[in-house]
Structure formats: C-alpha cells, structure tokens
Simulated scan of single mutants.
Amino acid sequence: MPLAEIPLSVWRKRSRTFVFRGQSIRYWTVGQGEPLLLIHGFPTASWDWHYLWQPLAQRYQVIACDMLGFGDSAKPRNHTYSLLEQADLQQALLAHLQVEQAVHILAHDYGDSVAQELLARHYEKRIEVASCVFLNGGLFPETHRPLLMQKLLLSPIGWLLGRAFSREALVKGFRQIFGPQTQPTESELDDYWSLVDSNHGPRIMH
C-alpha cells in the first residue's frame, strides 16, 4: 500500500511558529501518544518526513521542526551554526510544547549528529530519551563518504560555492543519493529546491 503524500503547499499551511533565541522557527505536530521527535537532514527540511507523517501519527505525538538555517525557518547570516545549538533548539521545541515525558527520536543524515548530542544529554540527565533510531548518517567517521559538494562547502571557498548553489546542483546530488526505484519527480525536486532557496538559503549553506 503506497504511503500518502502531503503536498508541500499543504504542509506549509499546517506549520506553526515559535521563537528560538530571537529567530523564527517553523514546526509541526500531530497525533497523540508518546512523543516522537523527527530530526531532518541536510540540506532539506522536515517535509522529508511527510510520507511517514500520518502513519506515525496513528501511534505517537509526532513533532518536527525545520532547524535553524533550514527549510522555512530563519536563516540568519553571520551566525555561527552548530550541532549543539540545533540540539538546544530541539529541547526548546519540546519545552514550548510542554513535553515532559521521555521522547522517542527518529533522525536522518545531519539530524543523526543532533540526535547523538541529545543522547549524550540523556546520559547527563538533561533530557530523557526513550529510544533513538538513526537513518543514513555519518555516525562512523571511518566509513562516512561525504559528497564532493559537502567537502567543498566546508572549505575556505564554501561561502562562494553556497552563493552559486542552484537547483541543478541539488538535483545532481540527489540523483546520487536516491535509489534507482525512488528517484524524486521533477515536481518533488522543485519542492526540495523551494525549501533550500527559502529565506535566501544558499547564502548560508556553508
């Protein structure tokens, strides 16, 4: 049975907003039950989860946000982005929603690193994590194979490449990541690019 799609236009209309350290953050929540925090990857946004959104909501209170610098959330320039801050953001969102019980985490890609920080905080008794599932992320440095674009974005010329980043570059990267039977449609690629390009995203990609 195919999973139901949530069009990006509909997804955006369902968003809510809260302020984190002076920055506007878009988030979504649906369902009832134990809290399940979804943490998206680079360079997209929480819309990555839209096929799983309704199935997961049948069992959990599902929570997701576009992290700072991603999707439709604020993308401040001259800001020092960090995984620690993104973990702070996830905890601030849970506090905003008054989630006090142990939270399940489902993370992908860049989100895996944020989830690892939350796990470390679990052992420091700063957050209670009930379970954590990692999807396709660089958990083990010796086996991680970043794309050339990812390496270049971290280089001294990263800021220049980010400004030149285009839909075509995004498509080229996605063609390597998606499987032969799961390649995104042109419409989906337009939507992914819309999320990257929102709020002048390419200028802060590095």
Results as ranks from 00 to 15, higher is better:
L160I: 13
L94C: 05
P156S: 00
F174W: 09
R167T: 03
T143W: 14
A115K: 09
A57G: 08
Y81M: 04
F134A: 03
L83A: 09
S82Y: 02
R26F: 02
S131K: 10
P141Q: 02
H79G: 00
L106E: 11
G41K: 10
T143R: 14
W193H: 00
A107M: 12
D66H: 13
K13P: 13
P180G: 09
A64H: 01
Y123D: 03
A130F: 04
S73M: 03
L139F: 05
Q98M: 11
W49K: 08
F174V: 07
E100Q: 14
L161F: 13
S113C: 01
G158P: 11
L189C: 03
H206A: 15
I25H: 00
F20W: 10
L152A: 13
Y110P: 00
G162I: 12
K151Y: 08
L148H: 06
G137F: 09
W159G: 00
V103N: 02
A45Y: 07
R16S: 10
N78L: 10
A95H: 08
H79F: 13
R77L: 10
I177A: 06
D72C: 06
F70A: 03
P76Y: 04
K13Y: 06
E168Q: 15
I105M: 05
E117L: 10
P141L: 06
A87L: 09
L94P: 06
H122K: 01
P43C: 07
F140T: 15
G179R: 08
T80N: 12
